[in-house]
């Protein structure tokens, strides 16, 4: 971990409209995440954890405030530029795994690479190697619906890392898994992400993660609270 800020969040606010009324999710959030830091974000359901991750990744634009990653202010980018930024710099792990059901395990991993550059034999070897480390060597050509939840999430983690992004965002990665499988997934994240020196923000309910996190925050009353 370095002292240099990988992610800087300044005065971030977000609200949405429902039945003609404005609902504020959070207001004027500030946060600095150092390169290689593992941040855990706690919060009850509906507190805005997923929205926060969407803002950080540039999937959703904020109403006000800034999200700066590696010195680039995402809020100043167009939708298209944010997409290209995400493609290169962000890895996403979702609660529902969200693998592309019509692509094989290997293809799911190759897709983020293909979006960045032409795929080479070296890339294919890289995918095969990573999957072998996850004990998927013989299931490269399997489709996601043939895998268990835990297996799918392991592939999803591999997909988030394969293109070597600077930031990993994980949204309730163990939310759909049983306790044991959840633990395995967290250990995997810890091994692959932390040891690779990646910056990670994880939104979760799981207490198991507390020991792994560098810092813990929660969203309370529309504000970010350090724990």
């Amino acid at each position: 971990m370095t002292t240099e800020a990988a992610i800087t969040i300044q005065q971030l606010s977000k609200s949405y409209q429902e039945s003609g009324r404005q609902h504020e999710i959070f207001s004027k959030l500030d946060m600095q995440v150092r390169r290689g830091e593992f941040i855990v974000l706690f919060g009850r359901s509906g507190s805005g954890k997923s929205t926060f991750l969407n803002l950080v990744s540039g999937i959703d634009p904020p109403d006000r405030g800034k999200v700066i990653i590696n010195g680039i202010n995402l809020t100043g980018l167009t939708e298209h530029e944010r997409t290209l930024f995400r493609r290169h710099h962000i890895g996403f792990v979702f609660q529902s795994y969200n693998l592309i059901p019509t692509l094989t395990v290997a293809e799911n991993l190759l897709l983020p690479l293909e979006l960045i550059k032409r795929i080479t034999v070296k890339d294919k070897d890289k995918v095969a190697g990573l999957l072998a480390r996850l004990n998927f060597a013989d299931r490269l050509d399997s489709y996601p619906d043939r895998l268990s939840g835990g297996e799918q999430q392991r592939v999803a983690i591999a997909r988030a890392l394969i293109h070597d992004p600077d930031v990993i965002l994980a949204d309730e990665p163990t939310g759909n898994l049983d306790l044991d499988t959840g633990k395995q997934v967290l250990e995997l994240l810890d091994t692959l992400v932390k040891k690779a020196g990646k910056t990670m923000i994880m939104a979760t309910h799981s207490q198991e993660v507390i020991g792994m996190a560098d810092r813990i925050f929660s969203i309370h009353n529309r504000s970010l609270v350090s724990r």
Partner: peptide, 14 residues
């Protein structure tokens, strides 16, 4: 929609 949303999330442009 969700599947297409995932593609957008991992960096596929409109």
């Amino acid at each position: 929609t969700r599947q297409l949303g995932i593609l957008r999330a991992i960096g596929i442009t409109p």
